[in-house]
């Protein structure tokens, strides 16, 4: 009690004691944020994370996850398309972010397919057979410890597309490795993945940013991570690169609807990284960190305010 009087007295002793409004905001934000993240899951808004497609630059999601994890932001469920599915499934399986970084440092195009060498090219030109991404499924099988989607630590879903019908196929259960492989199986680059009479290719064509999917898993508040390409610096040099870029631009255009449905969008501008530029995965993740950390106070403000409204609504 005596100490409190001393503190009150101390105000008078301070010269002006004026305090920057931004710092006042930061003090209350920090206080309310900690109260929010320490609130039991059942008593707060459930937070979902939607990770977009985007090839190599989708690895920026690792940076997003690192910043969110450091801040203690809850991720109650998550969805991802293509590279978003790769990163998201790993995180949902319980891999620490440091392990995701290791994957980014070691994974190469050869990890995805062994048909990209001379033999594979022979098969393509003579037999008209596209390279297979089967190799990647084996890699994922090991990384995700052979788990099914429903057995992952965090509820997870990823979309793919049936190339025969153009339908979106949303994986919410079944073998995680196969689902993730299908979700990032670039059409025209890799042969379709056969699964239950379906021919599956990359989900980026039909659901580039799976916001609806994460809402369907029960998220009330959706954070979307969207690494956007700044194309000005890189001109495609091959037919395949042109096709990949066209698919990528089209997918990105289709995100507008999904973006509008998300509560908070982390837009990461990535330049000089092409869709299959695997050497630049860590650089993409670094950009994810930088942008997410920059917008973190805004995200915290928005989520705290949303949760106040949510709790009022739930009363």
């Amino acid at each position: 009690m005596k100490k409190i009087f001393l503190i009150v007295f101390a105000f008078a002793a301070l010269p002006g004691f004026a305090y920057d409004a931004g710092r006042q905001d930061a003090l209350l934000r920090d206080f309310l944020w900690k109260e929010f993240i320490n609130t039991p899951k059942e008593q707060r808004a459930k937070v979902g994370l939607a990770l977009s497609a985007g090839g190599t630059r989708g690895f920026a999601h690792v940076g997003v996850l690192e910043v969110l994890e450091n801040a203690g932001a809850p991720v109650d469920m998550l969805t991802g398309t293509s590279m978003g599915a790769v990163v998201g499934s790993g995180y949902a399986a319980g891999l620490p972010v440091s392990r995701l970084w290791e994957i980014g440092n070691s994974i190469r195009l050869g990890t995805v397919s062994k048909d990209l060498g001379a033999t594979g090219m022979m098969k393509l030109f003579i037999g008209g057979k596209l390279p297979s991404s089967k190799n990647f499924e084996a890699f994922l099988e090991e990384t995700l410890q052979g788990k099914n989607i429903e057995d992952l630590n965090i509820p997870f879903a990823c979309p793919a597309m049936d190339i025969k019908t153009g339908e979106k196929i949303l994986f919410t259960s079944g073998p995680a490795a196969l689902a993730v492989r299908a979700s990032m199986n670039l059409p025209g680059i890799f042969e379709p993945v056969e699964y239950r009479q379906r021919q599956l290719v990359d989900g980026g064509v039909v659901d580039y940013l799976p916001v609806d999917a994460v809402r369907n898993l029960g998220a009330r508040y959706v954070i979307a991570s969207l690494p956007l390409q700044d194309y000005s610096g890189v001109v495609p040099k091959t037919v395949a690169a042109y096709l990949l870029r066209i698919g990528d631009i089209r997918g990105a255009i289709l995100t507008e609807e999904a973006v509008a449905k998300a509560n908070f969008v982390i837009r990461i501008k990535v330049s000089n990284i092409e869709v299959l530029d695997f050497n630049k995965l860590p650089a993409a993740a670094e950009l994810g960190i930088r942008e997410t950390y920059r917008v973190l106070p805004m995200l915290q403000d928005d989520l705290i305010i949303f949760n106040i409204k949510y709790r009022e609504h739930e009363k």
């Binding site: 409004a21 931004g22 006042q24 905001d25 209350l28 934000r29 309310l32 403000d301 705290i304 305010i305 106040i308």
Partner: peptide
Amino acid sequence: NDGFIRRV
């Protein structure tokens, strides 16, 4: 002002 404290 439009700071966090006022918004909350």
